[in-house]
Structure formats: C-alpha cells, structure tokens
Design a protein around this nucleic acid. Sequence first.
RNA 1: GCCGGAGUGGUGGAAUUGGUAGACACAAGGGACUUAAAAUCCCUCGCUCCCAAAGGGCGUGCCGGUUCGAGUCCGGCCUCCGGCACCA
Length: 843
Amino acid sequence: MILEERYDPRKVEPKWQKYWADMNLHKTETQMDQKKFYCLEMFPYPSGKIHMGHVRNYAIGDVIARYKKMQGYNVLHPMGWDAFGMPAENAAIKHSVHPLKWTYENISYMRSQLDKLGLSYDWDREVTTCSPEYYKWNQWFFIKMLEKGIAYRKSSYVNWCPSCETVLANEQVIDTKCWRCDSIVIQKELDQWFLRITNYAEELLRACDELTGWPEKVVLMQKNWIGKSYGVEVDFRIEGTDDSIRIFTTRQDTLFGATFLCLSPNHPLSRKLVSDKKELEKITAKYGKVDEKLGLFTGHYCINPTNSERIPIYIANFVLMEYGTGAIMSVPAHDQRDFDFAKNYGLHIKVVIEPEDKLPPHPPLTRGGQAGGESYELKEAYEDEGVLVNSGQFSGLESPEAREKIAHYIEEKGLGKKVVNYKLRDWGISRQRYWGTPIPVVYCAKCGIVPVPEKDLPVILPEDVKFTGKGGSPLLEAESFIRTSCPSCNGDARRETDTMDTFVDSSWYFVAYCLGKGNIDFISAAGSRPSAVSYWMPVDQYIGGVEHAVLHLLYSRFFTRVLRDLRIINCSEPFKNLLTQGMVIKDGAKMSKSKGNVVDPDYLIEKYGSDTSRLFSLFAAPPEKDLEWSDKGVEGAYRFLNRIWNIVFQNLDSMKSTDVTAFNKTGLDDISEAGRNLLRKTHQTIRKVTHDIEREYHFNTAIAALMELVNGISGFEPRNEKDRQIFRFAVENTLLLLFPFTPHITEELWHSIGNMKSISGQEWPACDEDLAKDEEIELVIQINGKLRGKLMIPRGLSDDEIKQRALNDPKAIEIIGKKEIKKVLVVKGRLINIVIGEHVCPK
RNA sequence: GCCGGAGUGGUGGAAUUGGUAGACACAAGGGACUUAAAAUCCCUCGCUCCCAAAGGGCGUGCCGGUUCGAGUCCGGCCUCCGGCACCA
C-alpha cells in the first residue's frame, strides 16, 4: 500500500468505511461461550440531521465498543431509530408530507451521517420503532399487561386547546397558552390508558441502591421521583353527618395543631359539602395553579379526633387529588402554606411544636399560652422539628418520638393507620395523536373493552389519513380503521384511536437489539429463555444525555421488570453502567438554532474528517462534563493527526524494513539513552491510556498522554537498528492506542507500514511494568512544606539514603543553616519534607 | 423553598488514595524557513518584586480549622449551573 504524502481524510475515511463494511467487521454473533460486552448509546429521534450532541454521544460509545473488542470481548454495538413522535406529525401539517415518508427519509440521511462518522455498528440489528415489525411488540406487551392488570383505563385530564380542538403535549403549552394559536389551554377530562408502574414503586426504589454503575446524581433523581414517604391516614368525622374525611400526613406530631381541614376540589366529598356549585367550579378552574392559594369554606365542620376540637372544612385549589387521600389537615403554625392560607381566611393558628433551644431566629413562642394560641403573633410557620406543646398526653415529647407514639395511638384507637405514600404516579400512555403505536383494543357495544387477539397483531397504523392540525387525531376520521368487528361477539365494534406514548417504544428497544432485525419474537420466547436475550442482557454500558435521567430510564427499569415477570428476560435491571454525557456548549450556551451557535457535523466532517471531529469531542472535556466547542480546538486536533501522518510518512522506508517482531526485552543493554526513554515512555503511555479509559472513560487525559508520546516520537532520531525497532514499536503502539478514537487514519497508517490485517482485529497493547519503570526519580525537597529544591536520584533508595542526599543538598544546607531539624518525612517516590524550627539551635 | 453538582492561568482542561498546582491543548508573543504568505519547526507563556539573572513573595471563589504538608479533608459564607417543586 502506498501512503500519500498529505493527510486527506476525504480520501482515507470513505476507503476504510467501505473496507469495514465489505469485510462485515462489525457484525456480531451470539456466542454463548464468549465473554460479552453490550455497549449501547441512546438511539436518536430521526429529526432530520444529527447534531453535535449525537456526535459526542456516539463517539464516546464507539471508543468503548472498539476498545472492548480489542480486549477480546464479543461486543454488541447496535443502533436504531426512535421513529414515532410529534415532529413527524407537525411536518405533515406544515409541509404536507406524510410522517412515514418524512421519517424514513430522515433515517436514510442520518444513517449516512452516522456511517461517515465511522461508527462500528452492527446494522443487521437496526430497529425502527415505527415499523409494524417493531410496534407489534408494543401491542403485544400491552395485551400482556392488560391480562396481568398492569394496564388499565381511567379518567384523567389532558391539555386541550379549544381553538385547535386538539390535545396538547406539555411542551406545546407555553405559559398556559397553545403554542400555535395562543389560546388559553384548558384541562379536559378523557378516559385514558395507564400502566401500573406504581406496583413496582417499592422494588424500583430499593433496587436504586444496586445501581452502583450509575452516576449518583441520576440514582438520587430516581429516588426523589419515586418519592417515598411514611405517614398516617386519619379520619376526621364530619359534624352532623355519618361521613368522615380521611387525610394523609407525615407530620402527625402536629396533629393537635390542626385548625382546619382542606379538600381537593376534585375530592368526591367536595361536591357533596359545597352547596354553591358555581363557587366550587371557580376553585376547580384554578386547581393546580401554583401562584394562587384559593379556598372556599364549605360551611361544614369536622372534629379533630385527637383533641375533639371543632374545625372548619375548606376546599383548597392547592390540594392534589392525585397524592395521598386528596385531603389534608392544615397546621398553620407549622406549615408555611397553611400559615399563608390561615392568614388569608382569618383562621386559627395554634402552636404545638417549639424549637428545642427556643432561641431566635424563630419567632418568640411563649410556652403554655392560652388554649388556641391566640396570645402571640407568629410571622411565619415553624416547620422544623422540636418539642410538642398543647398536645395532651404527648406534650413534652420530641417530634420523632411523638410521631411514633401518635401513629401507634391512632391505630390503637381505630382512628386511622400508618401508610407509605409515593409521589410516583401510574404512567399514562394514551396520546391523542396519529404517529404512534395504535393501542390494540376495540370497543364493542355488547362486550365493552375487548383486547385485540394476539394472532391479529399488529394493528396496523393506516397510512391514508388527513393532517389538518385541527379536531384531534387524524385517526378519528379514518373510518376504515375505526370500523371493525368485535373479536369476542363478531358484532360491530370501534377501534381505539389513541396511540401510545413513544416512551413505550424506547422502554425495551435494547432487548430487541439482542434478537436482531427480522427476529424479534417474544411469543415463542415467553416462558422459555431465549438464549440471545439472556446472553446479551443487561446492557454493560449505556451512554446518553442526562435529560433522560428520570423518565426513559425509569420506564425502562419498569419494563425490564415486567418482561422479567413474563419470563422473557432473566435480569431486573436493564443498564449495568450508565454514563450521562454533558451538553455541547458554544459561546457559553447550549447549541440551538435560535441562538445561532450550532456547528454542523456535515461541514465539520467535510472540512476535517470524522477522525478529527471525534478526537476533538473526546479531548476537550471528560465525557460527563459539558463540552465547550472551539473551532480553534478542532484545528488543534487536526494538527495532531497531521503530525502523526507526517511522522509515519517521513519514516516509511525505515519502518517498512524494520522487523518489530524481532524486538523483545533481551539485549536492551546496548540501547541508546534516547531509545530507552522512548521505550519507557511507550509503555508508560500504554499503562496510562488503559488506566484512563478504565477510570470512568477519561478519554481527554488518555489523548493527552498520546500527544505526549507523539511529541516524544517526533523528537527521536533512530541511529541504529535497535533504535529503529523501538521507533517502530512506539509508532505501532500509538496507532493501536489511538485506534478506538480515530479509526480511519490509524487503519490507513497501520497498513502503510506493511501490516496486512485490519488494525481493528489487533489486541489491545499490554504494558510491560519492568520497561515502564523510571530509572531515576525526581526527588522534591520541601522545607516546612515549601518547595525548596529538586534532586534526581536513582530508583529504590532507602529512606535513610534519601535523607542523606537531601540533607547534603547545598540549597537545603543553606536554608537550614543552624536551625533545629525537628522532623524529616519521606514520601516514597515523591518527596522529602524537612521540618525545621524557627530559631537557631541552641546547642 | 428542597435536593444535587461545580468554582483552578487569557481559554478548554490536568493534578489516581492529602505530597512538585497549571499536564495536554487553544490563544498570545518572539524566532527559523520563505521573494512573500500559508503550512511546518523551535523558544517564551499564573501574578508579582528585581534592569536582568539568581532568588524571593503571592496564588486553586471567600473566611477560618485540622495537618509536617490542603485544589483535595472539616466548619461557615458567596456565586453559578442542574433537577424537583404546592407531594401535606
């Protein structure tokens, strides 16, 4: 092979991309007897073109995949398309292009972009979520969940634009207004499908502690999202009726301080207790509005079961129906929201907790004030824990103990019970949209809701529909789709027109990759254990943006458990290790079209090639941190690759004629000092690069180490045969170590020096610790902790010898003078610290 | 408000368990080559005192502490970023 004088990535990169494809080098087989590594990057939404965030994400993944492969793992490294979603539908409305066409054209273009990046994907395993072959299994899982009671139907609220007559996603509601027509968005009640993720709340929470390969931050976010809390439910009898209101609280230590009770406007009792329905409607309309705290007195009272006090019942817009019991006791002295509310409506404020120290900054609280606590003025609620007062038999206890005792008392007296609550809600998956997986049920006048039988799956999403952007989902107009017969009674029936949330698609795609294109089949797999899935799962390394820290990752953990319970999979956690890469920033802000600070990957690849683009993305910051884009930095990366190219080109003849296989450890005595240094540096670099990749994938420092090695090589002039061997050894190892980062140029140079086989099949270099050892070390001399000198000493001196040398150092002698030496500390291989007194030694 | 994370040269970032702060780059300045430029190569590059060198002082957001020794550990602040946000 002939090496061009000048490095031209436009020639080099397509050549090797074709070579790898022709050789089928990235095809992966399931081989049960081989150690495996499943490397996965979050698949993209085919929005049109890839952006720099993708480049970074996939460059990181590709380095890991190629590195693991060189280490002898059987690596699964797949890619696919998260292809259902709203932008396709928006494009249809705006540009009259069918979502299917739009999506597949985008996929085709983006696929070519990924190929240009030289990513080592096994495309035989590609998944496209909008293909019937794929979404059939969304439907099948849904049916299975329906059978198991995990999928269910209930009424819920959606964002609704009255003008467009359509449902809006949260991100389409901008400042309470419709994104397209600026109408005020209202809440509309609809029957929708839910998945009972809350069944798994406890398991998902507990297993968080086993996610040791995840960033702590993400684990914490998941825990907070699940939001477990311990408390009690207590019944408050409504005066003059047989009804009672059940409230939930975590602060039962403040129970004696409850001076009123609040119901959610959506609470079933609200309609019963409020006679003025118009007022109730007003409050209901403001339900969930964060800025206003509104209340409505019901005219009814209830009895605080602990102290028999009669307290008013209010309806309050800020009480959530979805959490706890939809009713709360209000303790204005110890909850700021209740405090504000009480001030607003002139309600009693009764202190039942005092701070233990009773010191400012808390407002002065007079112990034993008159009953009701009106005798002093509070400026704000005291929300911390403390000592109970005005709490009957519990007065004098501290909050934690009081909570235990009061909870026990409540259970004993039959007033309520201890409960655990979670913030996690069931997952609503119904979307009133076209471009998604049809939910496979039919509605029959006689039989009600009937699931589509497995044999009739998939329910195909019809193509001939109209996109107007008005009047809800285009499926509502698709008569031939809607009209069907009931699978149970054969009578006329209507299909469900809602489609599934696209998070369903991405909750199991990593399992689909294990089976491969055309082979996804869980029917024959259920109950048995398909070898491919059990071999590959879990994903060993998952890489993606932190924006998916909660939803996608939590849904995937949930789905994996459902699949486990269906005996399709034999692990509970889908992702063993997770790397959340930082954003790509330019001029201090996230790249976005509106800011005009985007860098176009196509332009970058055309100008510098993908190797340079990859190298810079990996060099400029460690993967988990944000990456500040720098055009100049890209130039620097390009320059570095050029330097390596030039080194190889300039030494081509000598390298070709040097047999590096004859090079070994024997006969090193006659090597020149420069040769010895380069050899040592090479081994040290092997060690450092390996170490940095292993330690949290710190590619930036690994690349820095390679730059140092290249600096060493370029300053080295071989003078004899041994030198030439070392030179070639150093260059070959540079190429091997650099290969996962910049596969094209290294493959080119690898072949140019006479290697016949692909560099991708080579083993990862091993460091020879003997050869990596420094012969001399630099001894740092500190006096009283301050750097005062440096000394080269041979490796392996004893502490005493080191002390002698340091104390004999002229500079040390000068500074120490006649002062007393109090202590001498030797830190092996690093430094010596001589501690001396302030004054001249008296002796 | 609550929960996280981060503050290091002109810039991006290094510094493995407390042990030489600023690796490696970028930018800048100077030089070589060239008719010239680009490219390439070489040198300088935290601040400061000193004509300069030698040498000294200061320096990892701020204040204090522990230690022979602190970017790293502890306490208290400040600033920025991210997540959650009426969850009772």
